[in-house]
Deep mutational scan, measured.
Amino acid sequence: FYCSMCNVGAGEEMEFRQHLESKQHK
């Protein structure tokens, strides 16, 4: 899983979902 807007990668879907819901996500 990879967030191109934030340049952030996650190994698991749960981690990626937490990123999308976090304040760090743009």
Rank of each mutant, 00 (worst) to 15 (best):
F1V: 04
F1T: 06
F1Y: 08
F1E: 03
F1P: 00
F1D: 05
F1M: 12
F1Q: 06
F1A: 05
F1L: 09
Y2G: 01
Y2Q: 02
Y2F: 10
Y2V: 01
Y2K: 11
Y2A: 01
Y2C: 03
Y2D: 07
C3Q: 03
C3G: 04
C3A: 02
C3F: 00
C3V: 00
C3Y: 01
C3W: 00
C3N: 15
C3D: 01
C3K: 03
C3E: 00
S4P: 05
S4H: 12
S4N: 14
S4F: 03
S4L: 01
S4V: 03
S4M: 03
M5H: 09
M5A: 11
M5F: 04
M5E: 12
M5W: 04
M5D: 06
C6I: 02
C6V: 04
C6L: 01
C6A: 06
C6F: 01
C6R: 02
C6W: 01
C6H: 00
C6N: 00
C6T: 00
C6K: 00
N7M: 14
N7Q: 14
N7F: 07
N7A: 15
N7D: 07
N7K: 15
N7C: 13
V8Y: 12
V8A: 09
V8K: 15
V8E: 11
V8I: 11
V8W: 14
V8H: 15
V8D: 07
V8Q: 15
G9M: 11
G9P: 08
G9S: 14
G9V: 06
G9T: 14
G9H: 12
G9C: 05
G9K: 15
G9I: 11
G9R: 15
G9W: 03
G9Y: 13
G9E: 15
G9Q: 14
A10L: 11
A10M: 11
A10S: 12
A10K: 00
A10N: 09
A10G: 07
A10R: 04
A10T: 12
A10F: 15
G11P: 08
G11F: 05
G11W: 05
G11E: 13
G11H: 08
G11A: 07
E12A: 10
E12K: 10
E12I: 10
E12N: 10
E12S: 12
E12G: 11
E12Y: 05
E12L: 09
E12Q: 06
E12W: 02
E13A: 04
E13S: 03
E13H: 08
E13P: 07
E13N: 03
E13L: 05
E13I: 07
E13M: 11
M14Q: 06
M14I: 08
M14K: 13
M14G: 12
M14T: 07
M14R: 09
M14Y: 05
M14A: 11
M14N: 05
M14V: 08
M14P: 14
E15D: 15
E15Y: 05
E15M: 00
E15K: 10
E15F: 02
E15P: 11
E15Q: 14
E15C: 07
E15V: 08
F16R: 06
F16L: 06
F16N: 09
F16M: 03
F16E: 08
F16K: 10
F16W: 13
F16Y: 13
F16D: 05
R17Y: 05
R17E: 11
R17D: 13
R17I: 06
R17V: 09
R17P: 07
R17A: 13
R17H: 10
R17L: 11
R17F: 11
Q18P: 06
Q18R: 08
Q18L: 08
Q18M: 09
Q18A: 07
Q18K: 14
Q18V: 06
Q18E: 15
Q18T: 10
H19T: 03
H19Y: 00
H19I: 02
H19V: 02
H19Q: 03
H19D: 03
H19R: 03
H19F: 00
H19L: 01
H19E: 03
H19N: 05
H19G: 04
H19M: 01
H19P: 02
L20H: 13
L20R: 10
L20I: 14
L20P: 02
L20F: 09
L20Q: 12
L20C: 13
L20S: 05
L20N: 10
L20T: 11
L20W: 01
E21M: 04
E21H: 08
E21A: 08
E21T: 09
E21N: 08
E21G: 11
E21D: 07
E21I: 03
E21Y: 07
E21S: 09
E21K: 02
S22G: 09
S22E: 07
S22I: 01
S22A: 05
S22Q: 02
S22M: 01
S22T: 14
S22C: 13
S22F: 03
S22W: 00
S22P: 00
S22Y: 00
S22K: 01
K23P: 11
K23I: 12
K23R: 04
K23D: 14
K23A: 12
K23H: 08
K23T: 12
K23N: 09
K23Y: 12
K23G: 05
K23F: 11
K23E: 00
Q24S: 08
Q24C: 08
Q24F: 04
Q24I: 13
Q24M: 09
Q24N: 11
H25L: 02
H25W: 00
H25N: 02
H25Q: 02
H25C: 08
H25D: 06
H25Y: 03
H25T: 04
H25R: 01
H25I: 05
K26S: 12
K26F: 09
K26E: 09
K26R: 15
K26G: 14
K26H: 15
